[in-house]
Simulated scan of single mutants.
Amino acid sequence: MTQALRFRLATPQDAVAIIACVRAVRGEHYPIRLLYAPEELAQAIAYARLVFALALLPSTGEVAGLAALEPSPYGRTGEMGVMMVLPTHRRRHVADDLRLLLVAWARQHGRRGLWGEVLAPVADSPDAACVSQRFTENAQLVPSGIALGLWPGPGGERQSFVRYARPLPAKASSKACRLPTRHRALVSEILGRLNCPVSFTADSPASGAGILDAKHEEGLRSWVLAVPRIGSDSAAELAGAIRRIQTHPDVAYAHLELPLAQPGASALCELAEARGFFFSTVTAEPFHDGPGLRLQWLAQPIEPNGLLLLNPLARRIAGHQSREQERVRPWAVAAAA
């Protein structure tokens, strides 16, 4: 007889049990190495950098399933990321119950616009590979971008994902954003469907000291750059960070997150694109002052038009991304040389 599972949020003391579940499901090969480091994982839980929902066996306390939410350090959004369930407990709605627990935590802590990423298989993949995309359609989530080559897959090829976001609870007042003209129509459509209307204004020079954060994911061979505050020094700082990443021999891709409501956002977008970065995703509230744009750089090009995408908006995003990747390719090649 199958035991009824008990659901609760994790505490730092659960780090070892979480790692045991990761090993039982994924062995030693999960790319996010934090999930094999008990002290670092306990610290991430203690400071709510990661919030875990757990499904526990009452008799032993063993973790039979887990899901994680990563709150943005800059705004009110959060990523619904890691999801693992032991094979003996699958097809019993465990994942749904874990998600509900994380959504309740997010609401309690003022987190809005939750998002997650689902696999975008290549066009010759079996139809069953699109089950996760069908779930997002049924849940009325909105495609907001595509991350190309995000994850190392079988045989060494890198898998791509569609980012889906939950619309904000109600339409807010329009936010004035700075963005190159070529991106405005698509960004306006995505954010409008996320209940985050925007208008566009001419860029103006940034002032004061900026902030540039850099996060390295060794297992993914990636870097994520974020500029939560754009300052007069941000262009030079960002150019230097991009140069260091692009000349590193073991980096497969990088992302750059920019706050669109701040002066200087359009200029930093142009700077990054002149170094081979291209459109990836847009998010409603990743920064405290409004929407954000995520650009991507790839050490080796990947063609988004080869992906199997169910949603018409996701296909338009892929088309825009393909054109942008082609436009910046000469600069990307020069950066890799």
Rank of each mutant, 00 (worst) to 15 (best):
S234K: 06
R275W: 03
F135D: 12
H255P: 06
Y36N: 00
S222V: 07
P152H: 04
W105A: 12
R244Q: 10
L295N: 01
L298A: 06
A95W: 00
Y36P: 02
N195V: 03
E62Q: 10
A314C: 14
A10N: 09
I211N: 14
G156T: 13
A104Y: 10
A67H: 11
V142F: 02
P73V: 06
S59F: 01
T181Y: 07
S204N: 07
F7A: 05
G210E: 00
A48Y: 01
R294I: 04
D203T: 00
R193A: 12
A165M: 03
P197M: 02
A299R: 13
L86P: 04
A44L: 05
T60V: 03
G113C: 05
R243E: 11
S59G: 07
L256G: 07
L220H: 05
D203M: 01
Q325M: 11
I242D: 05
A120N: 06
P87T: 02
F161E: 14
Y74R: 07
F52P: 00
A267W: 00
P249F: 03
V162M: 08
S322D: 07
S132E: 15
R8Y: 12
V187E: 08
I302L: 14
R316C: 02
L119Q: 11
T281I: 05
R8H: 10
E39Y: 06
L293W: 00
T88Y: 02
Q159M: 10
Q300F: 07
F7T: 10
R163H: 02
A334I: 09
P312T: 06
E70R: 11
A17W: 08
L35E: 08
Q246F: 05
L9E: 09
P169H: 11
D96Y: 03
L86N: 05
M83G: 09
G78F: 00
A55G: 03
R76A: 10
V142Y: 04
G116C: 09
D250G: 04
Q108Y: 07
L307H: 06
R323H: 11
A165W: 02
L256H: 09
G264A: 14
M1L: 10
R158A: 13
R323T: 12
I242M: 13
F277P: 02
I211C: 15
V187N: 03
A67P: 00
W297Y: 10
L186D: 05
A337P: 04
L268S: 01
E270M: 08
L50V: 07
S174N: 06
R316V: 03
